[in-house]
Design a protein around this nucleic acid. Structure first.
Length: 469
DNA sequence: ATAGGGTTAG
């Protein structure tokens, strides 16, 4: 069996045969491992194809090494080939091969379904197999499932380690379960992981996201030598909890420490703090640091810059940064809109909104919130706005998007009807209205809208709504 | 001999 070497076809089969005859199998095995270690996947496969590798001893080790190399060099297709071969040899149930497969599917897929299949098929699941799955569930935003798996693991008598703990702490963070998070904090202390930067970062982040910024700070100050990520996580915790002055203070402290430098993550959060404080002078200082750090092309950092200048009432500067961005997304675009909104330039907001194609549900909401105030919509009152707010279907759609999540369906319904009347072929209006109905449990009406869409041949109804019911 | 973890923008 030869592996496909899609981009390396120049290796001739003839050469392979010669090698097979003359070279020492053990030397070849050693070569393969060396190539794997240095990330030279094609060279490893080349040697592999030149020998009779069905007779290799310790095959699980080879499969595991090769799979890890595929993951390392981001070659998913080769990884899948090795998976197929591993299945044929019955080695996909080996825990080393299996754990390497889990990494392949999580990191390169990400394909949770395949990963789960591999996991379920494992002959013996060790703490790494379990931790990989627990981490995987957190990554696909199923923190509850990840905690269930954790309990199942404990039930089998498998002892969690630092990797496992950092994953379950993250799950608590996502679930908003501060109490359970504190329990894990206790475990971390008892087990002596409290000086571990990675686990501490997970704890700081968990506390920061759950309004317990003081607890986050307690974890941070215990660290003898926090690394850049720990610093960023505490700065971010302060920022999330509107303790902007502390966030900035910690940022300046961090900049003064030898061997530490803020990265894109740090700048993203620090600029948010500057913007929310309206500190233009500091914001400009940070901007200068961004440039000298070579982070100008980072979409996160630049979106934060757009936001910061907008909040500091320098809309021109905000527009200027935006125009120079090489990569833009709906977030950068919404930050720009937000700046114009906050400065009362609604004309520009509407103009940019009409021109742009980067709208998402968040930007709909932001635009509306900034322009007319969401509170009025939530209360089911008529929205008074000079722009409609005319018989302009796109504006009605904006309105609808903003109040779709509102429990007051009457307003949403009225707006949706209006939008559908003005622009019957615009599928979003139908989708929004159906979502409104689903949100308030009017399933029959949601079905009616779906049928109406089909009848009129409008777009496609997505399988899931954005509103969790 | 081989596998798993933390931080960012509207």
């Amino acid at each position: 069996m030869k592996l496909l070497l899609s981009s390396q076809r120049h290796y001739s089969k003839l050469a392979s045969l010669n090698l097979k005859t003359f070279e020492n199998p053990q030397a070849n095995a050693y070569k393969i491992i060396q190539y794997c270690k240095s990330g030279s996947l094609f060279e490893a496969i080349h040697v592999l194809n030149s020998i009779d590798w069905t007779k290799l001893s310790n095959k699980p080790f080879f499969y595991a090494s090769l799979l890890q190399t595929c993951t390392k060099v981001v070659s998913f297709t080769h990884g899948i080939q090795f998976h197929t071969l591993a299945i044929k040899s019955g080695l996909d149930t080996d825990r080393f091969v299996g754990n390497s497969l889990l990494a392949l599917y999580f990191k390169l897929g990400p394909n949770f379904f395949e990963a789960r299949r591999v996991f379920d098929g494992l002959f013996y699941k060790d703490v790494i197999s379990w931790t990989s799955m627990i981490t995987g569930y957190v990554k696909v935003e199923k923190p509850k499932k990840s905690l269930e798996l954790f309990l199942e693991m404990l039930g089998l008598g498998i002892v969690p380690n630092g990797f496992t703990l950092s994953a379950v702490i993250k799950a608590c963070s996502e679930l908003g379960d501060l109490r359970l998070g504190k329990c894990f904090h206790g475990v971390v202390m008892v087990r002596g992981f409290d000086l571990n930067g990675v686990i501490s970062t997970a704890l700081i982040d968990m506390y920061g996201r759950n309004s317990a910024v003081d607890d986050a700070n307690l974890v941070f100050v215990e660290l003898p030598q926090p690394d850049a990520i720990c610093w960023t996580s505490i700065i971010s915790a302060f920022t999330r909890n509107d303790v902007y002055d502390k966030a900035l203070g910690f940022f300046y402290l961090m900049c003064r420490i030898d061997g530490l430098s803020p990265d894109g993550f740090t700048f993203g959060t620090v600029l948010t703090a500057c913007g929310n404080l309206g500190r233009l002078k500091q914001g400009k200082e940070v901007h200068a640091k961004v440039i000298t750090s070579g982070l100008s092309g980072n979409v996160f950092v630049e979106s934060s810059l757009v936001d910061m200048y907008g909040k500091c009432r320098l809309v021109n500067q905000s527009q200027c940064v935006f125009d120079r961005m090489s990569i833009k997304n709906s977030i950068s675009w919404t930050a720009l809109l937000g700046g114009y909104c906050q400065n009362g330039d609604f004309e520009s907001v509407i103009r940019i909104f009409r021109e742009g194609e980067k709208a998402d549900t968040y930007s709909f909401g932001t635009v509306l919130r900034a322009c007319s105030g969401l509170a009025a919509v939530r209360q089911g009152k008529e929205v008074h706005c000079q722009y409609v707010r005319r018989d302009d279907p796109s504006l009605w759609t904006v309105l609808l998007g903003a109040c779709a999540a509102s429990p007051h369906s009457a307003t949403a319904e009225r707006i949706a009807r209006k939008a559908m009347e003005l622009k019957p072929d615009h599928h979003l209006s139908y989708v929004y209205l159906a979502n409104v109905y689903r949100a308030v449990g009017r399933w029959d009406d949601a079905v009616k809208i779906r049928n109406l869409m089909t009848k009129r041949g409008v777009g496609k109804m997505p399988g899931t709504s954005w509103i969790e019911t």
